[in-house]
Design a binder for these strands. Structure first.
Length: 165
DNA sequence: TAAGTGCGTCGTT
DNA sequence: AACGACGCACTTA
């Protein structure tokens, strides 16, 4: 796991031969586990990681992420990959409801299952599951903690559009 | 308005 | 068969 140091804590990124396959939010208690020594990391992955780092920093700073690193979403089912792919098309600073995302992904009735797919997203922040909110402009849930969802949305200046509380 | 109930719907375990 | 990061209709206070 390679660290990404930010004002908001240390994110951890993991890579496969395909690309970025997992991104974890800062964990309060855990001191950075295996910071794999950089010399062991293939140069290709180093380059991907620089990109990942840059994207995370930008989003946290309230700016669009720019070019994403290659993403390895192979851990998901076909359904989940379809939802994640649709999520990637939500522009920075905008939000969609679970129902709208279900529609966009061609599964208009799978609204509830879409919530499950969001929760199974292995690459939060870059695959913007935080831009998926409940109907009636309510915020909805977030498995990594609502505080993160609120933080990300506020950095994207989208929070004011949501219903308070 | 706010809070609570019930049910449809469907992918995942 | 049971369980959701849902949505909608509807009832009560």
């Amino acid at each position: 796991m390679l660290p990404i140091r930010t004002e908001d804590g240390v994110f951890l990124a993991r890579y496969s031969v395909e690309g970025l396959c997992e991104l974890k939010f800062p964990q309060p208690g855990k001191s950075s586990p295996e910071s794999t020594s950089p010399s062991d990391v293939p140069s290709e992955i180093c380059q991907w990681h620089e990109r990942t780092d840059q994207c995370v920093q930008k989003i946290l700073a309230g700016k669009p992420p720019g070019k994403l690193p290659p993403l390895d979403l192979s851990s998901g089912t076909d359904f989940q990959r379809g939802i994640w792919k649709a999520m990637l098309e939500i522009p920075f600073g905008e939000v969609l409801s679970y129902a709208q995302l279900a529609l966009k992904a061609g599964k208009p009735a799978a609204v509830r299952a879409v919530g499950g797919a969001c929760g199974a997203n292995p690459i939060p922040v870059l695959v913007p599951c935080h831009r998926v909110v409940a109907a009636n402009r309510r915020i909805g849930g977030f498995s990594s903690g609502l505080k993160w969802k609120r933080l990300l949305l506020s950095r994207e200046a989208s929070l004011f559009r949501l219903q308070p509380a």
